[in-house]
Design a protein around this nucleic acid. Sequence first.
DNA 1: CTCAATGCAAATCCTTTGCATACCT
DNA 2: AGGTATGCAAAGGATTTGCATTGAG
Lengths: 137, 137
Amino acid sequence: MNKHVQWLKKNKLKVTPARMKMLDILENTEGLLPAEEIFLKLKDELPNVSLSTVYRSLEQLCNNDIVSAVNIEQKKEVHYELAHKHHAHHLICLSCGKVIHLHDCPVHGYADKMGEKHGFNITEHKLDLYGYCPACQ
Amino acid sequence: MNKHVQWLKKNKLKVTPARMKMLDILENTEGLLPAEEIFLKLKDELPNVSLSTVYRSLEQLCNNDIVSAVNIEQKKEVHYELAHKHHAHHLICLSCGKVIHLHDCPVHGYADKMGEKHGFNITEHKLDLYGYCPACQ
DNA sequence: CTCAATGCAAATCCTTTGCATACCT
DNA sequence: AGGTATGCAAAGGATTTGCATTGAG
């Protein structure tokens, strides 16, 4: 029984072809995908899937922290990725949209300090860097 | 001639009542406002304004770096604030939406390092902290 | 068998656009 | 005057929802 099946079962989600293939697609993607692109890739294997299945599945997967939704600055659609990739931050090319995952995080100490200063209980943070990749400069 | 008029003239934007009042609204707001709320506040003073004027003005103001558009994680609409407030980062309450502007930035050295490592020319970054404010905890 | 998951179409929300008119400079 | 800005209504794109059907456990 593979990892994806385990994730789904642990959260009492049914193991359906659509969900399994969506997880495969996300697993094999370096970067972020909008719902529409997940839908298109998914249709290659399941010609009858509907966009609403993609949205509903993503919602479930996000609710169970299997997938994370990311708002990319300057883009209107939400992008998705596997949650276990998301402890990282992003380096995003403003021209071609390429995304690199960064695994260092310089923010934790700062977050603690600011939380204390303003009386906030800080639960998460988002850090993304924007610029131009080697190919687009 | 006040500051807002100067900003508009410097960018060859016409000084209209709608734009002036929008800048006042943003100036007097601690935090971020979605277009719809700007529209509602604006209507108190200019009952005939239309939402499209708000969107079109915001677009102009953003293009000229007078206003910045911010994507808040987990919210679908774009939020706006005066750009000169935006050199800061945000501390956002997940419950009531309150926004505190943070003026320290722990990211610059990190951004330079990551840009160099991946060959990116980094032009901007976004850092927001999310949590619960004292009142909402 | 039972309820969650799906497909399809229609609805909704936020934002943008076309066009005629009004207004700043 | 001349072009920008505006109002109104209609269009658009992304996402959500209602309802009947299918399928996983």
